[in-house]
Simulated scan of single mutants.
Amino acid sequence: MSSEQTTMSGPVHLSLPSPPPDPVSGCLECLGIAVTRANARSVGDHSKATDANVVLRTHLREDHGAE
């Protein structure tokens, strides 16, 4: 007989996704990314909207010091 375990050891706990980042008021780059995200959402392109969130988070961290 084999003693190899064939079942999971316990439940997997997933958290809710982070809320979408907010653009900084008065920043044209933030505005452009937010418009791209809104356009993607309006046509149901959730992949492109998610990509815009990543770009916005990176921009916020690098150019606005957000964490």
Rank of each mutant, 00 (worst) to 15 (best):
G65W: 00
L60M: 03
A38C: 05
S42H: 15
S25D: 11
D63Y: 08
S3K: 10
L28S: 11
P19R: 08
S9N: 07
P20I: 01
A38K: 14
R57M: 04
V55I: 06
V54S: 09
D22S: 11
N39H: 09
L31N: 15
R37T: 00
C27G: 15
S42G: 14
V54W: 10
L31E: 10
E67R: 08
D22N: 13
V24H: 13
D45T: 00
N53H: 13
S18A: 06
L31M: 05
E67T: 13
S2P: 00
S3V: 07
E62S: 15
V12K: 12
A66P: 10
V55R: 06
E4D: 08
D45R: 01
P17R: 01
I33E: 06
I33P: 15
D22I: 03
M1G: 08
H46Q: 14
G32Q: 08
T50L: 15
V43F: 14
S3I: 08
E62A: 12
E67V: 13
A49P: 12
R61G: 06
R41C: 05
G26D: 07
C30Y: 11
E67Y: 05
E62V: 10
V24R: 09
R57P: 13
E62N: 09
P17C: 00
S25F: 07
V55N: 07
S18W: 04
Q5D: 11
E29N: 13
P21W: 09
A38Q: 13
V24D: 11
G44S: 04
A34M: 03
T36L: 02
G65K: 01
G65H: 02
H13P: 04
P17Y: 00
L16K: 03
V54T: 04
A34Y: 10
A52L: 01
D63Q: 05
N39G: 05
A34L: 02
D45H: 02
T36S: 08
G26E: 02
R41V: 03
G65D: 02
T36H: 14
G44Y: 06
G65Q: 00
G44N: 05
P21Q: 05
D63M: 08
R57Y: 12
C30F: 07
K48Y: 14
P19A: 04
H13K: 15
A66G: 07
I33M: 05
V55W: 09
R37M: 01
L31T: 09
I33W: 03
I33A: 07
L31K: 15
V12Q: 14
L56F: 12
R61I: 03
S18M: 07
L56M: 09
K48R: 15
L31S: 15
V24G: 12
H59N: 01
D63K: 04
G32T: 13
R61P: 14
L60A: 01
S2E: 06
E67C: 04
I33G: 10
S47D: 15
R41G: 07
H59S: 03
C30D: 06
S3N: 14
G44K: 05
G44R: 10
V54Q: 07
P19G: 01
C30G: 12
V43H: 04
P17L: 00
D22R: 08
S18F: 05
G32C: 07
L14D: 12
P21H: 12
V35F: 09
G10D: 08
T50Q: 08
L56C: 14
L56T: 10
S9V: 13
A38T: 09
S15H: 10
T7I: 02
R37A: 02
E67W: 06
T58G: 11
V43T: 07
T7Q: 01
H64V: 01
N39S: 06
M1P: 00
